[in-house]
Structure formats: structure tokens, C-alpha cells
Design a protein around this nucleic acid. Structure first.
Lengths: 66, 66
DNA sequence: TCATATTGTATTATATACTTTACATTTGTG
DNA sequence: CACAAATGTAAAGTATATAATACAATATGA
């Protein structure tokens, strides 16, 4: 799975820590997601999508390998 | 987090096992999700939403406690 | 009613999401 | 350049998603 968190975060002008606080996780969690180190839970995906004002499907994208 | 998997599954006429195979997880995973025993990964949420032809946000709903 | 499909539930085990702490590297700004 | 902010990264620990197996309960259909 891919994600556009870094891009969306740049659009909003948030730092990793800003976003982390908004969605109540650690900054490392945001950083690791951007680095595709792991797949977030659905709760976290919903919160992030909500922060960016976009549907989950526009931020998190399935790949063939999924 | 709540989800409407059971309802959507009934609309489509899928058994738990049908859906499990379509999204490549065990039947127990579907059963446990319907029983709110745990929150799925975003990959699984995307696959389930895709099977039901609806956005993730219509099937998985954040609650105040999230 | 009998047989079968479907669902609920429990247990054990494994993989991985996420936290905390800490430090190094990069980037932006005076 | 110097300083601070932002980002990258790593290790150790905890919580939880998911699998596999098994069996009980419930529905469904002949």
C-alpha cells in the first residue's frame, strides 16, 4: 500500500509533529508511515483522511502486492 | 470504531467465508471484525470497501472514543 | 426431523502497529 | 556561519491484528 501523507501534509503546511498531535499518535508513527515502514490501522487512516479533508481512498492506495 | 460489514455483506448475499476469500483473510478475521473484536488494517479496510463498492468512510465509522 | 451450511467463540501462536527514548542528519533562517 | 526546527532513523518494549484449529450453537432446507 502506498500513501500520500507527505504530499497532503505539505499542502496543509503541517509538520510531522503537527499531524501527529492532531491524530493522537507519536511523530515517529507519522514518519514511519511516510517511509512506508508500516500500514496504519483503519482508525488512524480515517483520522488522517479527515484532517486532510479527503476520502481515505485518495490518501491510501492499494497496490498489486496487497 | 464501528463498521457496517454485516449489513453490507447481507446486501451482497455473501457469507463470512465468501468475503474472507475475496479479501484474502481468514473467516475468523471477518467474524471478529463484525463482532468489533478488533480494528482492521487500512489494507483490509480498502479491500472490503472495494468489494462493497462503497467508500471506506461509509463502512468504517469513527466514534468519539477513537 | 435430519443433514448441512453458517455463524459464534475460544485458544495458542505469530507478525506487526505503535510508543518511548535517543541521537543523527537535513533544512531553513538570522 | 551559527542556531533552531524539522526530519530520519534505530532499539526495545507493549498492544493488537491475524492465522490456524477446533468445537458449539444456530439457521436453513430437504
Amino acid at each position: 500500500m502506498k500513501n500520500n501523507i507527505k504530499v497532503e501534509r505539505a499542502i496543509k503546511g503541517f509538520t510531522q509533529e503537527d499531524l501527529a498531535k492532531k491524530v493522537s499518535v507519536s511523530r515517529q508513527t507519522i514518519n514511519a508511515m511516510e517511509a512506508n515502514k508500516y500500514v496504519p490501522s483503519t482508525v488512524l487512516a480515517l483520522k488522517i483522511a479527515r484532517e486532510f479533508g479527503k476520502p481515505v481512498e485518495e490518501i491510501f492506495l492499494l497496490e498489486n502486492s496487497d
